[in-house]
Amino acid sequence: MDKKLYTVIIYSENLAGVLNQVTAEFTRRQLNIETLNVSSSSIDNVHRYTVSLWCDEEIINKVVKRLEKKIDILRASYYTEDEIFVQEVALYKISTPKLLANKHISKIIRHNNARVIEINSTYTVVEQTGKTETITKLYKEFAAEQCVLQFVKSGHIAVTRDVVEHLSEQLYVFDEDAKRVK
């Protein structure tokens, strides 16, 4: 089977325990989550999960159907990289004395269009937004100058390439579908 990097976008009610159920569905199949982002969505009390992982389509299809079956999950869908816009945010905490001593470091910041968001006498915080490769490239360049004190990246956040955002309408449809009785 061909493994691809899939991004799964999940909307759930804002209740305790949903994250556990989401990750358990991946764990059950020994699927290793590459990145995971959980945050509130554009709708009150609805949370949005963005999960990226390497997988084949047959498996991800089954996992997503099982996720959607969970009572408090509103919707789950999976996308390949060409179906979504994916970005990550990274923060690099670098040594200010090294930055001042090594001109090359400030060049790296400029050439990568990174943003400095804090400078003090001990450290400088640089922010970069972009694809994983962009972020990794900047890290490697800083690392080569041995100036990195800390490094963190956010994991994928993604929006679909659909022309309209369906969720608000979908919520109405869910509500209608959910009301169907035996």
């Binding site: 759930s12 408090d72 919520l171 509500d175 579908d177 959910a178 169907r180």
Partner: peptide, 12 residues
């Protein structure tokens, strides 16, 4: 309970 919006027991 008559419905839960995240749960569709009887799909159309």
């Amino acid at each position: 309970f008559e419905s839960i919006r995240s749960y569709v027991p009887y799909p159309k």
